[in-house]
């Protein structure tokens, strides 16, 4: 039999045509189509954010000039801030600035908004990324173990606990964690963020509680979803029956076959959640005094710092849109059914 040779030569052939395939591939078309849909959506979002900020009562110029400024001083500030120009013009200016990376200055700290973002975004990204990792690291093994014996003791305990924890809002979870780990056990800091520059361990210690506050409800959600999907696959999927008929062990059927299929649904769910999770960081960052995007937005809202709020709110919405785009594309890359242009 010379099939080894034959199969390798096919692989080389495949590689040679890879570039051609990628450019004209359904995947490339899919990405293009998704971007085509996302762009106007992002534009509409930015317009809506702009309009909402316009509608917030109060005069930013007067705010900026101070309580006891004269009418002329306020007018001067207004002119300086460009607020005397029509709204459409100001929006287009903002958009132009956004494209060229000039987002104006914070009216509170006078810092360029871009440098504020550069400071704050890594914190939020770290929180969100760790929260996802932790939640999946908990949810996947728990769901697999629970689905191994549906209706068994472990399964029931997991279902009850996850149902309960799922009903705990993240701000309550945050306070409970503080109560237990910071107040009672005094083992972890309650507030404050330690930058990575000051050491990985200190950094991780400082984000442990906020990450857990975000990750625990999420883990419950994923565990329940995954467990349900796994049990469904194990009970009724024909390919599971085929695997059993091959003599594959139940555990291998579960993770090698059912989980493989369920993971696509899980991936979609994660994508849909990213927006919500990033939104959820607002309140958790506030509780733990994390200098992230959420706190930046809240401070901006309180102090009528339009330039800051505008970009923060836009980023929150854009992340949700882009996350869905990325998941669609990842799905296409990972799922052979879509990868090869079917469906």
């Amino acid at each position: 039999m010379t099939t080894t040779v034959a199969t390798t030569s096919i692989r080389t052939e495949e590689r040679a045509s890879l570039l051609g395939r990628v450019l004209g591939s359904p995947l490339a078309r899919l990405i293009a189509r998704r971007i085509l849909i996302a762009t106007p959506l992002l534009l509409a979002i930015s317009i809506l954010v702009f309009a909402m900020l316009e509608a917030i009562p109060g005069d930013p110029a007067r705010n900026q000039a101070g309580m006891d400024a004269t009418e002329e001083q306020v007018e001067a500030v207004r002119k300086q801030m460009g607020l005397d120009r029509p709204a459409v013009e100001r929006y287009l200016t903002w958009l132009g600035g956004f494209v060229t990376g000039n987002l104006g200055r914070s009216s509170v700290s006078e810092q360029p908004v871009t440098s504020l973002l550069a400071e704050r975004m890594p914190v939020t990204i770290e929180l969100v990324a760790l929260a996802f990792l932790v939640s999946l690291a908990i949810a996947i093994p728990v769901a697999l173990l629970a689905a191994r014996k549906p209706g068994g003791v472990f399964d029931r305990v997991v279902m009850v606990i996850s149902m309960t924890l799922l009903a705990v809002p993240n701000y309550v979870m945050a306070l409970l964690l503080v109560l237990v780990f910071a107040v009672t056990l005094r083992s972890l800091p309650a507030i404050g963020y330690v930058s990575l520059d000051d050491g990985l361990l200190a950094n991780l210690r400082s984000v442990t509680l906020p990450v857990l506050a975000l990750a625990i409800p999420l883990a419950c959600f994923y565990a329940r979803f995954l467990r349900g999907d796994l049990v469904e696959q194990m009970n009724s999927a024909d390919y599971v029956e085929t695997a059993r008929a091959k003599g594959v062990t139940p555990w291998k059927v579960l993770w090698g076959h059912a989980f493989r299929n369920s993971s696509f649904g899980l991936l979609t769910l994660v994508g849909l959640n990213i927006g919500g999770l990033v939104g959820g960081t607002v309140i958790v960052e506030q509780i733990f005094s994390m200098p992230g995007l959420g706190v930046l937005m809240l401070q901006g809202v309180m102090s009528r710092d339009t330039a800051v709020v505008q970009i923060c709110v836009f980023i929150f919405a854009a992340v949700a849109v882009l996350a869905n785009l990325v998941v669609d594309v990842m799905y296409a890359v990972l799922d052979p059914r879509i990868r090869y242009g079917h469906r």
Partner: peptide, 18 residues
């Protein structure tokens, strides 16, 4: 699977799509 093997009705669903 070793001594006794089975082929099922619906080939579209009996193979793992992934």
């Amino acid at each position: 699977g070793r001594d006794i093997a089975m082929v099922f009705q619906d080939p579209a669903r009996s193979l793992n799509p992934t």
